[in-house]
Amino acid sequence: MKLRFNRSQLCIPYALFLILFVIAPLLVIIYYAFSNGQGKFTFDNFIGFFSSTNTLGTLLYSFALAIVTTLLCLFIAYPTAYFLARSGFKKQYVLLMLFILPMWINFTLRITALKEVLTLLEGNISLHPFLNSVIGMTYDFLPFMILPLYTSFLKLDKNLLEAAADLGANKFIVFLRVTLPLSIPGIISGITMVLLPSMTNYVVLDMLYNSTYIMGSLIGSYFSAYDWNNGSMISLVLLVIIFIVTLVTNRFGDKDSDARRTVL
């Protein structure tokens, strides 16, 4: 019998690649998080994380910053996406491109531009760290919120809206009872696209006022201090948070509207 070429064997290189460079690094992180510099098993890093006011404060600050940023993005993006998708503008697609286009400019360059403008407006921007962090994060992540919302509004069946209006609902009720519930998958995927990065993207804050207080920056500082064990512990905490958020959003989210993928 001749050995037959099997198409499914083509995934072997990629499977190996994922095992070696995606799964193995995560296992190594877990190992480092629960061992000390000499490689001995220990809970010290774990206890250290949850007993230090510095790390716990950072965790709370990250949550606060991420939640405020996400809400502000949602507040701006929701009407924007709605108007874009449902106003029947002639050049709807071109308008959408205008909102996505900034995503293709390197984010560090965009934050540089924002920093110059904020400095011009406020003088010393380090006087309002929280406000400016929220502005910076919102400026960076807004397109990621607009895109999934836009796709969920596009999918909205016009007949449903007309049916609701025919059955006597006024415009406000139609929005509240039909449009809003149907856009929830878009809202959820928008939230995941913004919430997690704004907990970890410390470069935005680092560039705006040279000091940072969020979860991502802890990894950065342990990296600079060659403290792999504590850095791994922070990574593990972040991984658990990401895992929980993903589990929750997979139940309610819209899998088709991953913003990064919709870009092209």
């Binding site: 990894i219 990574s235 972040l238 990064r260």
Partner: peptide, 30 residues
């Protein structure tokens, strides 16, 4: 095997870039 591959493929997509970078660094360099 398709589901396993899809799931593993999803890890870097949802993971924070900081964690991906740090974990690759710890495995390969350290």
């Amino acid at each position: 095997s398709k589901n396993l591959l899809n799931t593993a493929n999803q890890i870097p997509v949802v993971n924070a870039d900081v964690v991906t970078g740090f974990s690759v660094c710890v495995l390969l360099i350290i």
